[in-house]
Design a protein around this nucleic acid. Structure first.
Length: 449
RNA sequence: GGUCCCAUCGACUAGGGGUUAGGUCGCCACUCUUUCACAGUGAAAACACGGGUUCGAAUCCCGUUGGGACCGCCA
């Protein structure tokens, strides 16, 4: 259909508002897998057009965490590229230019409404039980009025002039054909009064200029696609292929949120989930190789080889921590012990184990790794090595262990071990199993009479 | 409320006109182990509902119901 020789270019376009959300991680992963699968380019673009939400250090944090997990970019703020700059805040002139073009073509218009006026409008709409959307009141401002307002320095925004009574249709690679009536599409703000573009404007302009061929992003964007299509059309540009990935959900099936558990990638890393396990698990959340394949463990390379958009699920997936734990435990059990030891060291700090003795740490780790769902469980598994005294975990057990009969059995055992010249790892098991309890119990029984 | 999307065991999913509807996590039982855990074996567990189409629908179509997302000078 399309030019097959065209290089595949995808982008991950987060806004730098803090930590990396698990949902973002999956979007980033799918973009990466898709790009690598097709020998294309993976572009990182920072969508920092909201001045009020900017968080210091967020970009570094994002790149670091993604990099840690093996997700890399071919173009972006760090490595540059031919289609930069990759910060939207550095591209203001570009957006301005295309906004002017839209204005000129009659596809956009000036609006001078104040936020308060808009608030009022929405409140009224809500009261009347109607859908809240801009009532297009500034559409037909006459030229003189606009000129006058502009000259008097009145704050303004530029809005998209959505054509009425039309149906916008597009084919989503995951969801299929989606249709929306233009009458319910908002005259979206394209350029804010602070001179920054909104997401809708910036993402269309950038995707076109950066030659993005496939837009792979979260499902929450589906409803704004028609607006974007209108902009592409007005500017005479081709619309990239779209793939809207279903959401990752809480246990109650709502959009994965902080309220119901950890959502930041760094939280999981900190708790000692291995990067391979995290990637493997996240990839399987919404994607599977299909064709009756029952393999569940995949390396990044295998994922790259197998990943296709066709096999991405069209419904949302609940984030199931139990399965992540199981998968992480499996990775821990099978991990290269030397490397595992190295990454486990931090979790041995302040536990009473001498971490300068690597071979000892390694030995202990090899003994306890089967019990670990995640590395931060190391300290509790270490107790057996560091406690001088083992305490029964509950009263019942305590009662049993301190009973006279039990005491006698233990004494007899100790005597036996002593007379055998001590115990060793190899001999204790057989010594215990050969130990004859009967005489001890008998004696104890008669004594109690 | 409006619009859009979605619907197979509790969860992730395979299958996609004729299958005993398969696998994984979890749950349960048994075995191993003088606790727990690990390991092994086994079991319970699903096509939301109603209409079509068809010789035959979990599978295709329509509707209902349920769930979700979006409706900002946020992305």
């Amino acid at each position: 259909m399309e030019n097959l020789k065209e290089e595949v270019r995808v982008r991950f376009a987060p806004s730098p508002t803090g930590f990396v959300h698990i949902g973002s991680l999956r979007t980033a992963l799918f973009n990466y897998l898709f790009a690598r699968h097709h020998n294309g380019k993976n572009v990182l673009r920072i969508e920092d057009t909201d001045q009020t939400r900017k968080v210091e250090g967020a970009v570094d944090n994002l790149i670091n965490n993604l990099g840690l997990l093996g997700i890399e970019f071919d173009e972006g703020p760090v490595q540059g590229g031919n289609y930069g700059p990759y910060y939207q805040s550095d591209r203001l002139d570009i957006y301005k230019k295309y906004c002017d073009e839209l204005l000129e073509k009659g596809a956009a218009y000036y609006a001078f409404d104040t936020p308060e006026e808009l608030d009022e409008m929405r409140k009224l709409q809500q009261l009347e039980g109607r859908q809240t959307m801009y009532d297009r009141r500034a559409r037909d401002l006459n030229k003189d009025e606009i000129k006058k307002n502009l000259e008097s320095g009145m704050p303004f925004v530029i809005r998209l002039k959505v054509p009425l009574d039309e149906e916008i249709k597009f084919d989503d690679l995951i969801k299929g054909t989606i249709k929306i009536e233009t009458n319910i599409i908002d005259d979206q703000i394209l350029l804010k009064s602070d001179g920054f573009p909104t997401y809708h404007m910036a993402n269309v302009v950038d995707d076109h200029l950066m030659k993005v061929t496939h837009i792979i992003r979260g499902e929450e964007w589906v409803t704004s696609v028609p607006k974007h299509i209108l902009i592409y059309r007005a500017l005479g540009w081709d619309v990239p292929k779209m793939a809207h990935v279903p959401l990752i959900l809480n246990k109650d099936k709502s959009k994965l949120s902080k309220r119901q558990g950890d959502v930041a990638v760094e939280d999981y890393l900190r708790k000692g989930y291995l990067k391979e396990a995290l990637i493997n698990f996240i990839a399987l959340l919404g994607w599977n190789p299909g064709e009756g394949e029952e393999q569940e463990f995949f390396t990044m390379d295998e994922l790259i080889k197998r990943f296709t958009l066709e096999k991405v699920q069209s419904s949302g997936a609940v984030f199931n921590i139990d399965k992540l734990n199981w998968m992480n435990n499996t990775y821990i059990k099978n991990y290269d012990l030397d490397i595992l030891t190295e990454i486990s060291i931090p979790y041995f700090e302040n536990t009473g184990i001498d971490i300068s003795d690597i071979s000892k740490v390694k030995k202990i780790l090899s003994a306890i790794r089967v019990y670990l769902n995640k590395l931060d469980e190391i300290p509790e598994q270490l107790k057996i090595f560091t406690q001088d005294e083992v305490r029964p975990e509950n009263d019942k057990l305590n009662e049993f262990l301190t009973a006279d009969t039990s005491r006698k059995v233990f004494h007899a055992l100790v005597n036996k071990f002593e007379s055998a010249g001590g115990i060793s790892i190899d001999s204790y098991k057989s010594a215990i199993s050969k130990f004859n309890l009967k005489p001890v119990l008998k004696e104890s029984f008669y004594l109690s009479l």
